[in-house]
Amino acid sequence: MSLVNTKIKPFTTQAFKDGKFIQVSDTDLAGKWAVFFFYPADFTFVCPTELGDLADHYGEFQKLGVEIYSVSTDTHFTHKAWHDSSETIGKVKYTMLGDPAGVITNNFGVMREGQGLADRGTFVVDPNGVIQAVEVTAEGIGRDAADLLRKIKAAQYVASHPGEVCPAKWQEGEKTLAPSLDLVGKI
């Protein structure tokens, strides 16, 4: 079952951000756009390339009012050790959620059964805590932060312009569509 248009489930966890351990819960997201970016494990191969790509674009996400939460089933202690030992992960300024009990990973339906690891899953959550976009890829397929930014801009545009939708490859400032009987069969 798709989680699109469902509300995120409650959670509380420990995280690593800005050199500190902090507690984060679902209530911290109220009124804000958020991305939950699940990945299998710290100290691996594709994962640091993805987290580094997000780090390189983090300022752009912040300009859109979007907070990034990377999530793996590692602890917040492991996140700190990875951050301190990897040049790529050392660039990360967003919140790295620890989920060793798998609560958040299971809440979002991306826990690999019997492995204790998350799939590569990306979830865009609106200010009401409702999931607006979901992407899940196989182990060897890394994600692209620039395309995630495009999807967030589209989600934000649609949220603030009822009655309009964004077509494929839509970029900010481009023409949108207003679904109506007049458009049926003409696209």
Rank of each mutant, 00 (worst) to 15 (best):
K63W: 08
A178S: 15
L183V: 11
D144A: 12
A178G: 07
L54R: 00
K151D: 10
V71R: 09
Q132E: 08
E174M: 15
V66S: 01
I104D: 00
N106C: 08
L177A: 11
S85K: 15
V24R: 12
G65Q: 02
G59W: 11
A34P: 06
N107R: 00
V125W: 00
D84K: 12
Q62P: 04
K91V: 01
V46C: 02
A30M: 11
G59S: 09
G109A: 03
I141A: 04
L148V: 09
P10G: 13
K80E: 15
V125Q: 02
V124Q: 07
V184H: 08
F11M: 01
K80I: 09
Q156T: 13
D56M: 10
T49N: 14
F11K: 07
P179V: 06
F123R: 12
F123W: 09
I22G: 01
K151L: 13
G31V: 00
D144K: 14
P40R: 00
I22C: 05
V158E: 15
D28I: 03
D28C: 01
G114I: 07
H83K: 11
A168S: 13
I141R: 10
Q132A: 03
W33T: 05
D144H: 12
D53E: 15
S85E: 10
F43S: 04
F36L: 04
E164F: 01
L97F: 00
L183F: 05
P167F: 03
L183H: 03
Q156A: 01
P162V: 01
F43A: 00
L29S: 05
